[in-house]
């Protein structure tokens, strides 16, 4: 039973990898990365059952946590071109970011002199 599930999840991971490398847009790739991480979590859990070592579930939990944070971080980076505080980015970078995503509020930030 676990062998069948492991093989199915492996095939699903391979198909997701295909979408990850062939995705035409960035968001296809982000979706594929998220899906691949979720499949990895399940695969680690199944592997723990297969080998009789349920300690693998701790690794699976850690992987689930990292997977979510990495997805949100990738999306935030490609939207604001900065991962940390967006208001503290250099002004040229802030302007280019505001022009790229057309957020009107970010361009008016320098009047207040940065957020602190």
């Amino acid at each position: 039973m676990f062998e069948i599930a492991a093989i199915a999840v492996l095939i699903a991971m391979l198909l997701t990898l295909y979408r990850l490398f062939a995705g035409p847009t960035l968001y296809d790739r982000v979706l594929a990365v998220n899906l691949f991480g979720t499949h990895t979590v399940v695969f680690i859990g199944i592997l723990g059952f297969l080998t009789g070592r349920p300690d693998f579930l701790d690794i699976a939990l850690l992987y689930a946590l990292i997977n979510f944070v990495s997805t949100v971080a990738i999306l935030k980076f490609f939207r604001y071109r900065a991962i940390g505080d967006v208001g503290r980015a250099p002004i040229w970078r802030r302007k280019s970011a505001s022009r790229r995503i057309r957020l009107p509020k970010l361009g008016k930030r320098p009047k207040t002199g940065g957020s602190k």
Binding site: Y27, A60, L61, A64, T71, V72
Partner: peptide
């Protein structure tokens, strides 16, 4: 442990998908 992982994935999976869709829509 399995229940904790399942609940976490059940919450964060749709959240990540929504974030991806929202970013794609805004872009």
């Amino acid at each position: 442990k399995l229940a904790i992982i399942g609940a976490f994935l059940f919450i964060t999976g749709p959240t990540a998908t929504h974030a991806t869709a929202n970013a794609a829509l805004v872009s």
